[in-house]
């Protein structure tokens, strides 16, 4: 089952519960009016619409693309699109090259610029957090163990029993389902966590039922080949600062189209070079042979 998040901007009141919950679940220092960085994975921005002067709240987070440019860019495959729907990353693999940051069409991955061992970090849709359960075993020092008996490490942090309980509380919603911390915290149901197909149907239903309250567009349905975060709005997405020049096709395809030709190029060019060498080499041989004959003849004459 592939998960997704639906953000209905018409319901958002800009309270910041989602950003606080995000900071808590990842054990980040709490900040007022945070910006997106290596210790903060979601923000709420107040945008004043140009024509009406009305204020809107825009939540920014990783879109968990269906075909993520970041995952295709990463040379060590540290970023992965999971079946769960989340795009996760493996801290240990990262070599700190930052190509994912350049490649991301939404400018989401952030870097630990002040660290001496800097890695890329971003929202994981609480992937590991959602998979922590209360019945997981503990070792003697009180750390949570996974099925193979290794300590659970989330973003470089080993998880104690206390951490686990906090995380489970923050990622369990009212229906007792596991969900991302931001969606659990949202008091207005402006951020909803759920199954991708169902959320997409829900988004369509809202637009169809109240066409006056929404612009007829689900941002994230088609952009960059589809994402796992959908936005609904009652004003144009362009006026809210969303990128509206993105193509509706997969971004990784743009580089794969070239990469997949490499074997053909190598074989063709290799044979071509060999052929040229063969011809020019033969020409040299012939020339040398002719000169030999010529010199023999001239000797004979002499």
């Amino acid at each position: 089952m592939s998960h997704a998040i639906l953000v209905d901007l018409t319901l958002c009141v800009g309270c910041g519960a989602c950003t606080t919950a995000c900071q808590q679940v990842h054990n980040f220092p709490e900040k007022e009016n945070p910006t997106l960085d290596d210790k903060n994975f979601t923000t709420i921005r107040t945008v004043t619409e140009n024509e009406s002067g009305d204020e809107y709240y825009v939540r920014k987070m990783c879109r968990h693309c269906e075909e993520p440019a970041c995952a295709s860019a990463c040379l060590v495959g540290a970023l992965t699109k999971t079946k769960d729907g989340a795009v996760t990353w493996d801290t240990n693999k990262c070599i700190g090259c930052r190509y994912c940051m350049l490649a991301c069409p939404f400018d989401i991955p952030k870097y630990e610029w002040s660290s001496m061992s800097p890695k890329v970090r971003k929202c994981t849709m609480c992937y590991q957090e959602r998979h922590l359960t209360a019945d997981m075993e503990l070792d003697d020092a009180g750390y949570v163990l996974d099925a193979s008996g290794e300590r659970v490490v989330i973003e470089g942090r080993e998880i104690t029993a206390e951490d686990r309980d906090t995380i489970i509380e923050l990622t369990t919603n009212m229906d007792d389902n596991r969900a991302s911390a931001c969606s659990v915290a949202c008091p207005m149901e402006a951020t909803v966590f759920g199954e991708r197909d169902q959320l997409l149907a829900e988004a369509k239903r809202r637009i169809l039922e109240s066409p006056d309250d929404y612009v007829p567009r689900i941002y994230g349905q088609k952009e960059v080949g589809g994402t796992s975060v959908f936005y609904l709005s009652n004003v144009s997405f362009e006026s809210l600062g969303f990128y509206t020049n993105l193509e509706n096709s997969s971004y990784p395809d743009k580089t794969w189209r070239v990469l997949e030709k490499i074997p053909d190029i190598v074989v063709t060019a290799g044979v071509a070079l060999g052929a040229v060498y063969w011809i020019t080499n033969r020409r040299e041989d012939v020339k040398r042979y002719e000169e030999e004959i010529k010199s023999k003849r001239s000797k004979k004459k002499a």
Partner: peptide, 26 residues
């Protein structure tokens, strides 16, 4: 100089991602 974790550069050899242009470059 540019890699954040240059000592991990050998990761490119073992965690290969053939879909990455940067892997080809490496």
């Amino acid at each position: 100089f540019d890699l954040g974790r240059p000592w991990a550069i050998w990761h490119a050899l073992i965690y290969q991602n053939p879909h990455s242009v940067l892997f080809e470059v490496a």
